[in-house]
């Protein structure tokens, strides 16, 4: 009997250990592979130069800028909307309210929609519907300015994609604010809004920040939603307005790997670009982890 129990115990330790090891090992293998493949191509000028020689040489500067702009606009739109929704859901909506249940259902569904569907939606809704409407309204339908993929539509599509991440993490942060603190404020004659503004939001601020960062890092790594809504193969200029197309890191990797004139010759660029993209998302995730840790520490 004792022996059998020992064997089962050892098996459980072995299997769970192996599984954990597999996770860590695959990250290490991927990282080593990417760094090994991209190290030779990577340099400071790789970050500051435009692609040259039909994109077989040069750097990825425009793609970095494009990614940066896209992420900023996405954040400016998505985080406020998501945060306000989260405040509504956790503070104002009664748990039995049909409307709140509908929002939650929509958020969950949104989280499960494949990224490429967001891309198609962005094309159909933003580019062809809103864009065309704007062209009619602004230029009488003669010009073609907004009814084509651009920075704004890509960023808005991306904001939509990251909305569930923001809502869920902000709501979690708000719920983590102890009930005692809310009651303290209300018992002093604070109104609900004063309590939210002066107690709930300040005490969940790191959580809101974490949510924002997680959303950014999720969004920064996605390519599918911008395929049809704004990313360009190659552009000689940086985007100068919201109605311009833009180059983007993830998309750059995709086209270099599938549509480059010489896929073999550009493998160094592909690896180095991946390295840059991963470095960005990893650092964002790292910041989010640190903030979350600080928040937990402050609460207890």
């Amino acid at each position: 009997m004792i022996k059998k129990r020992n064997i089962i115990g050892a098996l459980v330790v072995g299997i769970t250990g192996m599984a954990s090891f597999a996770v860590v090992a695959s990250i290490v293998v991927i990282m080593v592979n990417i760094i090994a493949g991209g190290m030779d191509t990577f340099s400071i000028s790789f970050l500051t130069e435009s692609p040259k020689e039909g994109m077989t040489e040069g750097g990825i500067y425009p793609a970095i800028i494009g990614t940066f702009l896209r992420v900023i606009i996405m954040t400016l739109v998505g985080v406020p909307i998501g945060a306000v929704t989260a405040v509504y859901l956790s503070e104002y909506a009664s748990s039995k309210s049909k409307f709140a249940q509908m929002i939650r259902f929509a958020v969950n569904t949104l989280a499960g929609v494949p990224a490429i569907v967001f891309g198609l939606f962005g094309l159909g809704f933003f580019v062809q519907f809103v864009g065309q409407g704007m062209d009619y309204a602004l230029e009488g339908g003669s010009g073609l300015r907004w009814a084509q993929p651009n920075l704004l539509w890509a960023s808005l599509t991306m904001a939509l994609l990251t909305l569930p991440v923001v809502i869920v993490s902000v709501e979690e942060a708000i719920r983590a604010v102890p009930r005692e603190l809310r009651e303290a404020s209300l018992a002093l004659g604070g109104t609900k809004w004063q309590t939210i503004r002066k107690v709930v939001i300040p005490n969940s601020f790191t959580g809101v920040l974490t949510g924002g960062i997680l959303a950014i890092s999720r969004g920064a790594g996605e390519v599918a939603p911008i395929l049809f809504t704004g990313a360009a193969y190659f552009l000689p200029h940086l985007p100068a307005s919201l109605s311009d197309q833009f180059m983007e890191l993830g998309y750059h990797i995709y086209i270099m790997a599938t549509q480059s004139a010489d896929v073999e010759a550009t493998s160094g660029i592909q690896y180095a670009t991946t390295m840059v993209l991963l470095f960005c998302t990893f650092s964002l995730n790292f910041i989010a982890v640190v903030l979350r840790y600080k928040m937990r520490k402050k609460m207890h």
């Binding site: 005692e180 303290a184 004063q194 002066k198 005490n203």
Partner: peptide, 30 residues
């Protein structure tokens, strides 16, 4: 309005994670 006149002290002390001064000044400030 009622709670301004009928205050409450809870079982578990619940100061805000603010300074001592800000804790006391919270009510008057709002």
């Amino acid at each position: 309005e009622l709670r301004k006149k009928v205050g409450m002290i809870f079982q578990k002390s619940n100061p805000f994670p603010k300074s001592i001064y800000e804790n006391v000044a919270y009510g008057p400030k709002i």
